[in-house]
Design a protein around this nucleic acid. Structure first.
Lengths: 338, 338
DNA sequence: TTGTAAGCGTTATCAC
DNA sequence: GTGATAACGCTTACAA
């Protein structure tokens, strides 16, 4: 591999000057600059970023850790973050935890080893405590959490406003005349799903309706959604609508309804969560909450860049993006009755 | 940041011994090894991989460049590659070209700068010539292309067998009794789409049917698929089936059919390509070709690891995975007629 | 089994 | 405007 020494030898100048020329420093004559660049190209010189990062103590690199890269939600976040960072000349190092706590810790270590300037993280499902993050914080590396976060560890974070968006979804169902609204929630160990459930409950209470515990079940996949629908619809007092914490469980409910001659939205209303691409392909199309996932990435990266610029500042930001209710056929009973 | 010097000072030994202990070399006494590890933990030592890679001349890192990370197809490939590499203790550096040639070149430079040990690449749509790859090859960095490849530049590559899988899809349509089969193809600058078209044409010819040029149109998105269906179905001699090079164009065709009271598969048959998740959610479900994308990643990474182990070898492998025809309702006319 | 010292490729500092 | 030199943190001959 070609180094600046070879370039220097070729031109009979010192490596220091070559370095200055390549980095476009002011104190180099235009002629040497030109000569250096031309020789560098001729020799196919590729700078060694390991060496320069080592020397500089920083490599203009940010690390991001996500549970699964092959999830639209996370890959869009990565996309948003990368766009933002590239514009400020930062590179992005992407790690997956594969929903494993051990792998999450390994990823953190690997990023710290690479001496990244900052870290963006969304935790694995297995991650229940934030202690492993103290290594990052103690090392003085700015850290921004997103989506699945620990709120009280003194870092900035970006989340969806799961509470309010859930609240408004249920209000929407109430406005459409549904009165016995069931909720299929995700793993309640996660704050995300706690908030969605709370928003649901509050909307029900505010409408002066009593919360009917039997109408609240766990169901986050297509299969568990289907089974939950089956179970709930065979109750003496079956629900007339489902607010689902996941588009997949909403799909399960829809499939159950279609198979059992329940008209959607006439007999039952359905609202999902995430605006997965398939929700506009089902018939009827599924009403859902769009999370603007790319914006989560943009926002998290922007906050991180701010903290990078002003390392002394102890201001921590929490940013809550409100998912937008995307109205489609599965919940629009009033329209359907017209 | 803690270095091995601090650990050495703490124990009154030399940094060299610390290094040996941390790297688990044989020529260190068990007691010092233990002591070093315990102090390292106490001080929250994190090895500097920049320094060790620089010193070693290799960092056990592979780079992968994909057009878009937020495409299920590519993120699954990444997933497969990572699984394979991790098992051999390699790290994966992920880059996106965002379908831009300039960004692809930048990504290559960035990976070369990071002194990766090898590179996996699938080209951007804008990439029409392989010259920019010579930098990699000249640098002696093993390179494996996948999916969108340049076959004749002396590197290993992994692709789908687009020709044969297309051929068999059309044979399937013929067996179902369709005789006027249209083809919606992708950008024909790409070998992927050339091969799919050739497979289609050969199957038609082998069946003793004349190729009807008006039945071949470009259409790769939902919208262009819809428009193509509209155009073709208003011909004097409309097709009775569509072999689409993309699930999205197949979806467009399906939507056109549903809106115009054409029964699928009775009036027209549809086959897509890629087994996108939505293809099993439409009604009727869409017959399509599953590409086993994760396997592409596994295969490409495995080949790369082989070349890494035996750098002298000049054997280049080309591996062609055959996408599997996933039969669903949209093309099963015989079943539907029963 | 351990220590000494050189060097990986780069850049900042100081001198000229 | 340019050159010499040291240093970033680590590893590995070579010596002891």
């Amino acid at each position: 591999m070609v180094t600046i020494y070879e370039i220097a030898k070729e031109l009979n100048i010192s490596p220091a000057t070559v370095s200055r020329a390549l980095n476009n420093k002011p104190n180099v004559s235009k002629s040497t600059k030109k000569a250096v660049i031309s020789i560098a190209e001729k020799l196919h010189y590729v700078p060694n970023s390991l060496a320069s990062s080592l020397r500089n103590g920083r490599g203009k690199t940010i690390g991001i850790i996500v549970p699964q890269i092959n999830h639209q939600f996370f890959s869009s976040i990565i996309h948003g973050a990368e766009k933002t960072l590239i514009s400020k000349d930062y590179n992005l190092l992407i790690c997956q935890s594969n929903e494993s706590f051990v792998k999450e810790v390994q990823s953190i270590n690997s990023l710290l080893s690479s001496r990244v300037d900052g870290i963006l993280i969304s935790h694995s499902k297995e991650t229940t405590t934030p202690e492993h993050l103290t290594n990052i914080i103690k090392a003085g590396i700015p850290l921004v959490q997103f989506d699945r976060v620990f709120p009280n560890i003194g870092t900035s974070y970006v989340t969806n406003d799961n509470y309010n968006s859930s609240y408004h979804s249920v209000v929407h169902l109430l406005e459409q005349g549904y009165t016995r609204i069931a909720h299929l929630h995700g793993p309640i160990t996660s704050k995300v799903h706690q908030d969605r459930k709370k928003g649901y409950e509050q909307a029900i209470l505010n409408a002066g309706i009593e919360i009917f515990k039997d109408h609240i079940l766990e169901g986050i996949t297509e299969e568990t959604g289907y089974n939950a629908a089956k179970e709930l619809m065979s109750l003496k007092n079956p629900p007339d609508a489902f607010f689902c914490a996941s588009d997949y469980s909403a799909l399960g409910v829809l499939n159950y309804a279609l198979e059992n001659n329940l008209k959607v939205p006439k007999d039952i209303g359905i609202v999902g969560f995430a605006n997965e691409p398939f929700t506009r392909l089902t018939r009827p199309k599924i009403t859902t909450l769009d999370q603007f996932s790319e914006n989560i990435g943009i926002e998290a990266a922007t906050i991180l860049l701010n903290e990078l610029e002003d390392k002394e500042s102890t201001i921590r930001r929490t940013y809550s993006l409100v998912p937008s209710l995307t109205l489609r056929e599965s919940s629009m009973r009033l329209d359907a009755n017209k």
